[in-house]
């Protein structure tokens, strides 16, 4: 009776074991009943037949239940196959996820780099300057011997790379020292001057010694160049640059 309760909720195993217990009880009951009737020599046809029918019925139920259990075993096999399939799919999905993460990382890096590049492109565009201007500026600097002394330079020649004596004097250090502006030869080699070996042209004539002399010797607005203002700073510069640009273009065409 206990075994028959809540059949739907019970597992097949429990039901089978219950059915088996029932069968065992019924079989024992029948055998005992028969043994008793044999001993007393009194046939009791009613009771043992009932028990026998019940035993046959329970045995059939047990067989049916075993059949169900066999079917469940097959379903269990199918479920195991499906579980393997699920595991395989899971690993596939994880693999894919890993690859997607990698791709995301690579793309994020690429996007970051591209953004940085765009930023620098934007920055370059905002402060754009034509190559021609740069070349002009380079010419201007080099034409005034600002970066390299002339090939035939000798001590005492004022055409020399920066900073010249003039720039040194006009700079902060010069002002701080409060140097006198006249009668000082500065650091130029005095022995060469004293020996008078320099040709007339190269005789040092410093702008701070005489304003008149300096005009012919130094490039115009020599002092301005020291500051390296951007080209086009003033009208004079532009003219100067134009002149040099013409020179450079002619020289470059010559080289071609």
């Amino acid at each position: 009776a206990v075994c028959s309760m809540a059949v739907a909720e019970k597992s097949t195993k429990e039901r089978l074991l219950c059915a088996l217990d029932n069968l065992e009880v019924l079989a024992r009951e029948l055998i005992e009943m028969l043994a008793l009737s044999r001993g007393q020599k009194l046939p009791q046809p009613g009771e043992d037949t009932q028990v026998l029918e019940l035993l046959v019925q329970r045995d059939r139920d047990f067989q049916d239940l075993m059949e169900v259990a066999q079917q469940q075993g097959k379903v269990h096999q199918e479920m195991q196959l499906l579980e393997k399939e699920v595991e395989k799919r899971d690993s596939d999905i994880q693999q894919l996820q890993k690859q997607l993460k990698e791709a995301e990382h690579i793309l994020a890096t690429a996007v970051y780099q591209a953004k940085e590049k765009l930023k620098s492109i934007d920055k370059a565009r905002k402060g754009s300057i034509s190559s021609e201007e740069i070349i002009k500026y380079a010419h201007r600097i080099s034409a005034s011997n600002a970066v390299c002394a002339p090939l035939n330079w000798v001590p005492g020649d004022p055409r020399r790379p920066y900073p010249t004596d003039l720039e040194m004097r006009s700079g902060m250090l010069g002002h701080m020292a409060n140097l006198p502006t006249n009668g000082v030869n500065g650091h130029l080699p005095g022995d060469a001057l004293a020996a008078g070996r320099l040709p007339d042209v190269l005789t040092p004539q410093y702008p701070w010694q005489s304003a008149d002399v300096s005009v012919g010797m130094l490039p115009p607005h020599h002092g301005n160049d020291f500051g390296l203002e951007p080209p086009g700073h003033n009208k004079e510069n532009e003219d100067d640059v134009e002149a040099m640009s013409t020179d450079s273009s002619s020289s470059s065409s010559d080289s071609d």
């Binding site: 019970k10 089978l16 074991l17 169900v68 259990a69 469940q72 075993g73 269990h76 479920m79």
Partner: peptide, 16 residues
């Protein structure tokens, strides 16, 4: 045999 049978720890409905 019943104890060793696979897949019978649940009812057929649950298993389905």
């Amino acid at each position: 045999q019943i104890s060793a049978m696979p897949g019978i720890d649940s009812s057929p409905a649950e298993q389905q």
